[in-house]
Amino acid sequence: MSDLVTMPAQASPSARRVRSIARVLSVDGGTAWLEPEQTSACGHCASAASCGSNGLGSSGSRLEKRRFPLANSADLQAGERVVVTVDESSLLKASLTAYMIPLVVAIGAGSIAESLYGSDLLSLAAMSLGLIAGLLVARLVARRLAARGELAPHYLRRAAPGESCNAD
């Protein structure tokens, strides 16, 4: 499965979309690698002390983990800032897939074990196994969503100088 974005540059105007600014890090053939731009709020919230500014768990390392490829149909160059969008419904589908599927399967397994054996320890074991099974199901669903291009950001346009994701 490839994470490469293959969607057309102009997305459906009817869908509600979430916009974000990303910076082009490098261009590799027909693929541009982008990193979400750190918002001004990063490093200023209540978690800033635990987040830190360097090393594992810092906002920098988190952004690095969230780098994503984009089909370079607009001849993007390294260092450029672009506006990317994601369908609002995709965000909801992704949340349901990542969090609710494992949760519901795990709770279902725990409830069945509790009603059958009435033992806390067995319910705990069943819930742990249910979590693993739920994550595997979530993986399959996520693959299907990714194959349809629903989990990938779409290129919208180049960002204006000084434009931020909160501008509109």
Partner: peptide
């Protein structure tokens, strides 16, 4: 499990720690 899901949702989890 899914790098695509992580890229889309990864921002929420660290906020929950506190």
């Amino acid at each position: 499990v899914s790098p695509s899901l992580f890229r889309m949702l990864g921002i929420y989890l660290p906020l929950i720690t506190t």
